[in-house]
């Protein structure tokens, strides 16, 4: 692992209804682009971006999934190995917000119980078309114990913050895990984040 030029590797999977802007969020963060007229994602897309946080290189493996129903069985297979899930909805689309409980059920069913879930309301540049108030989303995320953020992939609002904050939380989570696991021997079926860590960081 010392050959690889990063200190941490995390898998982040974006999920949510079709057309809420998952691909645009990923493109904005990884390439700094906002491609207008983005077609629907087919299956899953895969991007990598390495960021530096407090002098440590963090490699983020970002899986951008298709929101359409027919790809559900493909996207579900990625939940389990994810360190974090970004659950996205469109603030101008009530329907995408109303589907959130269904998405949470999927997470419950397929993801590891250690996964960090972030709720993201995208498209705040279209403020005049807003259908989901910030307060409603905040209350919902609080009830579900999720971190919550509103973004605009188009205006690049909060996009960087979303991914960097997430990376920070993943790092501290990973640190805690190794501390715990150094004391007691690992149990079977543990989350796999530990295996991603280079031990040299903590010894």
């Amino acid at each position: 692992m010392s050959m690889e030029d990063y200190d941490f590797l995390f898998k982040i999977v974006l999920i949510g209804n079709a057309g809420v802007g998952k691909t645009c969020l990923v493109r904005r963060f990884t390439q700094g682009l906002f491609p207008p007229g983005q077609g629907a994602t087919i299956g899953v897309d895969f991007m990598i971006k390495t960021v530096e946080i407090n002098g440590e290189k963090v490699k983020l493996q970002i899986w951008d999934t298709a929101g359409q129903e027919r790809f559900r069985s493909i996207t579900q297979s990625y939940y389990r190995s994810a360190n974090a899930l970004i659950l996205t909805y469109d603030i101008t689309c009530e329907e995408s917000f109303r589907c959130l409980p269904e998405w949470l059920r999927e997470i419950e069913q397929y993801a590891s119980n250690k996964v960090i879930t972030v709720l993201v309301g995208n498209k705040i540049d279209l403020a005049d078309k807003r259908e989901v108030s910030q307060q409603r989303a905040a209350e919902f995320s609080e009830a579900q114990d999720m971190y919550y953020l509103e973004t605009s992939a188009k205006e690049s609002d909060n996009v960087e913050k979303l991914f960097l904050d997430l990376a920070c939380r993943l790092i501290s989570e990973a640190r805690q895990n190794t501390l715990v696991n150094n004391v007691s021997s690992p149990l079977p079926g543990e989350g796999k984040s530990i295996s991603y860590l280079t031990c040299c960081n903590f010894n």
Partner: peptide
């Protein structure tokens, strides 16, 4: 011949081996 289908089954196999069978 579908890469996404293949990857999904690799993922499911990993899960099957890692949790169920290892258990």
């Amino acid at each position: 011949s579908s890469i996404d289908c293949l990857c999904a089954m690799i993922n499911h196999s990993t899960t099957e081996l890692e949790s169920d069978f290892r258990e």
